[in-house]
Design a binder for these strands. Structure first.
Length: 160
DNA sequence: GCCAACGTTGGC
DNA sequence: GCCAACGTTGGC
């Protein structure tokens, strides 16, 4: 059965919490802690194995795209929602009807150069990119193929 | 540290 | 169902 074409995403992480280098070191992680319905719906309904991800460092100095990742497992329940000791515990979520999901992520490729937010802003092809919009707090966002290619070019890699 | 933007909560 | 209050995100 033919897979659909890979889609492209941007996912935000605070590097002080979990950085792209952490992902490279661990080789794989589950993307926990998403507690926004719009982001949850994208992960649950739209993300498929093989999709590509811009790993974006938010609340960083400087903020920007630190690397490329890929989806290696589709959505399943976020275990942290059931753990009272976890910062992302959700007392309203029941195991028989989980509210939040994770996907698994693995590194795809390192960029030759970190692509800062300022770099993104300077690229005409990226003028409509979601992450650059003022006030945008969505931690999981779709990226167009053109945007993906433009970011890779800024990062000094030919394909990914 | 500031604060704009936005999502969520809860009183009514 | 409205909307004010509140909490969070995240750039600067």
């Amino acid at each position: 059965m033919p897979r659909r074409e890979p889609r492209y995403w941007l996912m935000k992480s605070e590097p002080s919490v979990y950085s792209f280098d952490d992902l490279v070191r661990e080789k794989r992680t589950f993307w926990d802690g998403v507690r926004n319905y719009q982001a949850r719906n994208l992960m649950r309904d739209e993300m498929k194995v093989g999709d590509r991800v811009l790993f974006y460092h938010s609340n960083a100095d400087p903020p920007g795209v630190a690397g490329l990742a890929k989806i290696v497992k589709e959505a399943y329940p976020d275990p942290t929602q059931f753990d009272p000791k976890d910062a992302h515990f959700d007392p309203k979520s029941k195991p028989e009807d989980p509210r939040w999901v994770v996907v698994d992520l693995a590194p795809l490729k390192k960029l030759k150069r970190f692509v800062s937010r300022e770099d993104l802003r300077g690229a005409p092809k990226l003028k409509d990119m979601g992450v650059l919009r003022r006030g945008n707090r969505l931690s999981v966002q779709p990226v167009t193929p053109g945007e993906w290619r433009a970011v890779l070019a800024l990062g000094g890699v030919k394909s990914g």
